[in-house]
């Protein structure tokens, strides 16, 4: 027994111990991350659509006043920016609308004042006064039911109607072989809205009255 132990010891010692070693250099591993998901752009709050500048937000005014609230400054600046970026717009009508809450006279006045207030803001932010007119419709043009507060809130709004804009018509031929487009005919025309001459107030003439505006200046809560 002792003999076999001795033989094993000789065998192990003769074979040597473990070999320690390290990699000569780092082993590179690369990986491809998943495609970066492009951040979804929020839909524009302000966009030109046919004969309108649509705002998917609301200009906020002080209660029963024509003062634009500070939180709407961003939206107002965006509207000014869109007008600047669309030089084809030659004339724009700012239309104030009120809910049926309150007297018709008061709502008429409030809607005119608010439209005028928006017009003033835009002219103070670089929009040419000659391009803007304003008008108040009072509660005459509801888009929702005035019986509910939600409906009345929808009815209190300001809209932007393009009265005149340059339109360019192009006739293009596409080369069947190269796919290159070639303009063979181009002409411009000024498109005017059918009611472009409806009663309105010109920017820079605050004293002007809408023909539909009542003579009274009595202020009651409403709009």
């Amino acid at each position: 027994m002792r003999a076999w132990l001795w033989i094993s010891t000789v065998a192990v010692l003769g074979c040597g111990g473990p070999v320690a070693f390290q990699g000569q250099s780092t082993l590179p591993v690369t990986g491809t991350p998943p495609p970066a998901v492009a951040e979804a752009k929020p839909p524009p709050r302000v966009e030109v659509r046919d004969n309108k500048i649509e705002i998917h937000d609301k200009i906020q005014f002080d209660y029963d006043q024509a003062t634009i609230r500070p939180e709407s400054s961003g939206l107002m600046n965006e509207i000014a920016s869109v007008i600047h970026k669309n030089p084809q717009i030659k004339k724009l009508r700012i239309e104030g609308n009120a809910s049926a809450e309150g007297s018709p006279q008061h709502n008429q006045k409030l809607s005119e004042d608010r439209a005028r207030s928006v017009m003033k803001y835009l002219t103070e932010h670089g929009v040419a006064a000659g391009e803007l007119v304003s008008i108040g419709h009072g509660a005459d043009r509801p888009i929702a039911d005035n019986a509910s507060e939600a409906g009345r809130e929808q009815n209190r709004r300001v809209e932007f109607v393009i009265l005149e804009q340059d339109v360019t018509h192009k006739k293009v031929e596409v080369d069947a072989q190269t796919g290159v487009e070639k303009v063979v005919d181009e002409n411009h025309e000024v498109v005017r809205a059918a009611d472009a001459d409806a009663g309105e107030q010109q920017a820079g003439k605050p004293g002007a009255k809408s023909p539909t505006a009542p003579a009274t200046t009595a202020r009651k809560k409403g709009g």
């Binding site: 070999v19 990699g23 780092t26 082993l27 591993v29 990986g31 495609p35 998901v37």
Partner: peptide, 22 residues
């Protein structure tokens, strides 16, 4: 196999490629 036991140390380096365009 080797007649000797090996005691190894290796270093891996992980590096991401640029993310592909979505």
């Amino acid at each position: 196999p080797d007649r000797h036991e090996g005691r190894a140390t290796f270093v891996y380096e992980f590096t991401p490629n640029p993310a592909p365009a979505s």
